[in-house]
């Protein structure tokens, strides 16, 4: 693999997406505070979205929209399928985050703490 500019871009974009996913999983596994865990979940979401959109990108491509005057540009467009999937995934991610946060509020009202090592009713 020759080390040119394209490789730097490849490694940085994919690397940042994978780094976001790993940081999120680290937060979910290590952190004790529930809001930090939900933040980690949303970071995993963000990394996955970046990964999907980066797979669909084409060098010197244009956005998949036929603007007036450029109706014949279909040979130069980026892949629209990952964009549509990510569009769905972002909205679902917000729904998941909102339900998780409401559970966090409920747990705080019931137990008076949000740290999972102090909530003892799940241990036996």
């Amino acid at each position: 693999m020759d080390f040119d500019f394209q490789n730097i871009v490849t490694i940085s974009v994919y690397g940042s997406a994978i780094a976001l996913i790993l940081i999120g999983i680290y937060a979910v596994l290590i952190k004790k505070h529930l809001i930090k865990i939900v933040i980690g979940m949303s970071l995993v979401d963000a990394g996955l979205h970046l990964l999907f959109v980066a797979i669909g990108y084409i060098n010197n491509g244009t956005a998949p929209i036929f603007s007036p005057g450029y109706e014949d540009a279909a040979t130069n467009m980026v892949d629209p399928v990952p964009q549509a999937l990510v569009l769905t995934a972002i909205v679902i991610g917000f729904a998941v985050t909102a339900v998780a946060l409401s559970l966090v509020i409920r747990l705080y009202k019931h137990h008076g703490t949000v740290r999972i090592d102090e909530i003892k009713s799940l241990k036996w």
Binding site: Q6, T10, I11, Y14, I18, A54, I55, Y57, I58, D79
Partner: peptide, 11 residues
């Protein structure tokens, strides 16, 4: 993911 080259035309 390094097997998938970034920015190549896979269409």
């Amino acid at each position: 993911f390094l097997q998938i080259p970034f920015g190549q035309n896979r269409l």
